[in-house]
Design a protein around this nucleic acid. Structure first.
Lengths: 109, 109
DNA sequence: GCGATGCCTCAGCCCTCCGTGAGATGTTCA
DNA sequence: TGAACATCTCACGGAGGGCTGAGGCATCGC
């Protein structure tokens, strides 16, 4: 990459717009503090909805709304607890998370 | 990190909320396609406002509004062209960009 | 079975943010 | 000097997204 300013006085009108759709979609998920906190918490292992609600000081249906968006994006999925199936434990899909991370890093690299 | 579900039937109410303020602030800048495209374009070297407007198909005052937010965040700064001072060339502050990237990666890692 | 618990979905209100237009500043050129 | 250009700032109107409450489904303990 060139850190120099271009010599020409004429603006370059042939510059192409980069493709940032994946990075923007990921940023749209991270822009909410609750969703960002959820993704960070799940980096340390599975967490159930009521645990997230308690840790983040939010109501459970609010957490559930945000989890729906993360689920639709494929970043997380839920499994029921073996001995107490009332609890839904969420965990990340690390392959999708890695792709999302790569898209963000590509913009800021 | 543990990928296993916890054995206890009692939810863990002692989980702490992570600090995601820096990542959220960065995501708030990347969530707009124009700002994300600007940051990606500037990775290849300085670009002036009219060049961004032409490449992205947006009006110059719109680009300028977005550049103001990136400037306030310290991610970019402007220098006038030496031989034609009408043109403002923007470039990234790579130290700030690296910090923003690190904050995002920390949430998704 | 019945109540309590954990979680989900949906509609509604509210707030924030983006694009636009107008006006202002600074620079170049004739 | 005046016109054209490049850019900035601000106020306004509209669209999108978050929080809430109500209602519903599934599971566990008594």
């Amino acid at each position: 990459m060139t850190t120099e300013l271009p010599d020409v006085c004429e603006p370059r009108l042939n510059l192409r717009a980069p493709d940032v759709t994946d990075a923007v979609a990921t940023a749209a998920l991270l822009v909410d503090p609750i969703r960002a906190s959820i993704l960070r918490m799940l980096a340390d292992g599975p967490v159930c909805v009521c645990e997230m609600a308690a840790a983040l000081g939010a109501r459970e249906n609010n957490i559930s709304n945000h989890l729906a968006k993360l689920r639709d994006a494929g970043l997380v999925h839920a499994t029921r607890h073996e001995t107490n199936a009332r609890f839904l434990y969420y965990q990340r899909d690390e392959a999708v998370v890695a792709a999302a991370r790569a898209a963000l890093v590509d913009v800021l690299r």
